[in-house]
Amino acid sequence: MTNKNEHNTHLDSEYGVDSRYASHEEYQSEATALMEARLQRMKGLSNSQVVQAKLLQLKFQMQEFIKQPVNEAKSYFSMFLQQYIDTLYAKRAVFAKDIGITPVQLSQVINNHRAPQDDFILKLMIHSERMYKGVSPFPEALWYQVYFHEKLCNLMATQQQWQSTLAKEVSVSEPSVRYGKRKK
């Protein structure tokens, strides 16, 4: 039988929690006990649970990346690709074989010596869809979104390098011909 007080507590318990530690000593003693208990529990994790957590981490990191403002030139696509392959494969050459490319081609993409072609990203999309089945829904467009977001980031971050040269090659004449002078 449910105690009436207990029932009321459950109804009100979600108003909030204040779980701040009262002192550093309190934190320290509880942190040590918690860590010991967690290390024991971690021993029971299966390889598939570890892979599942890593795949989820990668998906969330990619989703966070495409939400970030465009201002930094960094090779995120190849970084995420490495993370993906190394989570699932002991040897990168086996992944290359699985998506029908040579290890050299894969290495060139990973090391940013070659841009990934459509064919490569589409195969990666299919591979990810299969690997994430049963783990978490994997948005089909995610690899493409990462690729284009990175491209945009790089372009914007290097704007000073290309803008002055290209600006000389660009003129705007048509609007003034078509619309005449602006009305005041």
Binding site: V17, S19, L34, M42, V50, A53, K54, L56, Q57, F60
Partner: peptide, 15 residues
């Protein structure tokens, strides 16, 4: 926590 720590992730509370 998953983004930061993957398989080692932990969220704690002290209600």
């Amino acid at each position: 926590a998953i983004i930061e720590y993957a398989e080692l992730a932990c969220v704690s509370l002290r209600p």
